[in-house]
Design a protein around this nucleic acid. Structure first.
Lengths: 184, 184, 184, 184
DNA sequence: GATGAATGAGCTTTCATTCAT
DNA sequence: CATGAATGAAAGCTCATTCAT
């Protein structure tokens, strides 16, 4: 259906996506498309060729991020083992939260519904997250009465940016982790 | 310093503030001032007389909210008793989160720094919140290694809107409360 | 026709007129009426009671100035003698030019036509200026082929503000005076 | 540094500049940008692409005028000869003064400082004017104790618009020319 | 009479989107 | 295909003027 892009077109698309992520993350979604285009070294028209509206660009950025995050989660499951993977993943997320200002905006602030515009991506992410959760519950490191929806919510919660300095972030995360741990 | 407003002016100011809160909460901060003015039944100039910039209006709304929330917290301390006041307050906050979209935006998304523009209000709120926390710790219902900054962060976290349906919200809150509870 | 104002009303009118002159002279005609009112210590409504439009205020200021200038000219004729009065008057005008930014605006920039809105004042001024000119021509200090219109024009010219530093102003004035002097 | 504009862009830019000059000259600087755009047959955004603020447009117009005036002066020096070029130039300026309402506004009324925002242009103009002056002084038609600053001031002075009818303008100019002439 | 709050048209400026080059 | 100029619909904000207090 979608024919493979010409090499230069693919390069442009990737470049715009990367610049858009960096820019939205650092400065929020209000940055004009013209500015994204300028930083990517292309014309505004080129951005619109790949992403027909600004919202489409934002969604594409979010999709791309979620995909990478899921990948990271899969890696952790293999490397860290079932009992710790979820917790390490959690701390990973929190640590990168500071630069993901724009992603959080994209996920919640502006009324964007990722599930509606890119259902496959969301589902795939939840499936991977579910794997981490099951593994942890199997290993006895996470209580059994939470499900994947709760864990996802707690994740989003931990990405709320710039409200906490790192000291506080650390302790907030610990409280949430304790809440996740089975009764001791 | 600032003389009392004329009766009609005070009425208008209050009306604008209320309409602005409802509108920002429901539709976010991007709603034009003209629309706020229209809904409040005044001219745009009147809004600008009371709040010289849009940011000033947003800040005033946030201030007003924080003040009311602090008031509510004080009431709860008296009514619910030291052991439960903080938890009831927590659930209160969460329940109203759905309509506070705009308040959350104001507090964090747009780079507004309430502490910078209205230091007294923030401090007063933290002081009240500290009272609830101390009471709970005194009653043994909250662990002693959290401080007011952590509790405030968890509060903000619970107000992140529209990400959870109410089912999930309920369970997220429970996890956080468990995390706050002393080791069982 | 116009009944005498109550004492306080007259005081307010005079105060507004003075503040308006100072302000327009210093900052130009774009200063808002509200600001004039504030500086005069009255409400905006009071300004509008005395001067029904902003233009009316500007005209009143200009009238008032022209009247004072004519007065000054008459005094000089008596004090300085026929041969020198016009020249001294000239230098007087130039010296005060720096603060008369707004008066010049009023006279020419904004398409205001003082002659149309206040014919008597203009005529009275020209009559006095004519007296100075005749005196000088009688004394042989000014050439006979210039008339009052030319002298008035040269006066306005010399009030063009802020274009010259004082050094230059001095020399410009000398050139113009030499041009007025009969062939030597 | 700035790459050459595309053909259509250059056409639009020139058109806006010309319309802006005509309009400001005829009606003053208060004409809205939207009106300039309408008369130039372009959208308001196009004006802002070429001139990022209204002030930038005004400055560009003034620059353009000063440049043309300097060009005219150079031509006259070649055509009219050293003794008369300055005087012809003077009368040229005065004759066009009636339509340069806006230029004069731009140069002095609104506190715009051409020297500050476009130093090269001002300097180039003064240099050319100095050439005319030197030529005239060399030919003995202008007194030696005036310098270029005085002549520029007299020029500005002669451009003060609409204060004189043409009859008076003629005679004012003669007085100033006589003032410039060496003692007879 | 004086006050200053309210009005609302109008201004400058921005930016998502389209389209000629 | 890429470009970036053009568009034009808002947006935030100002201020001359009116009118309830």
């Amino acid at each position: 259906m979608t024919r493979p892009l010409r090499a230069d077109a693919a390069r442009n698309r990737a470049r715009v996506l990367e610049v858009a992520y960096d820019t939205f993350a650092a400065e929020g979604l209000t940055v004009p498309i013209d500015e994204i285009a300028r930083r990517a070294g292309v014309g505004a028209g080129t951005v619109y060729r790949h992403f027909p509206t600004k919202e489409a660009l934002v969604v594409a950025v979010a999709e791309d991020r979620v995909r990478r995050i899921a990948e990271r989660a899969r890696t952790l499951l293999a490397v860290e083992g079932p009992g710790q993977a979820l917790f390490v993943f959690f701390r990973d997320m929190v640590r990168s939260a500071a630069v993901d200002h724009g992603l959080v905006d994209a996920l919640m602030s502006q009324g964007l519904d990722l599930e509606a515009v890119a259902p496959g991506v969301e589902a795939a992410f939840l499936s991977t997250l579910g794997d981490l959760l099951s593994a942890a519950q199997g290993a006895g490191t996470v209580r059994r009465d939470v499900d994947v929806a709760v864990v996802k919510a707690l994740l989003v919660v931990c990405k709320v940016p710039q409200v906490f300095d790192s000291q506080v972030t650390e302790r907030v995360t610990r409280v949430i982790e304790d809440g996740l741990t089975p009764v001791r």
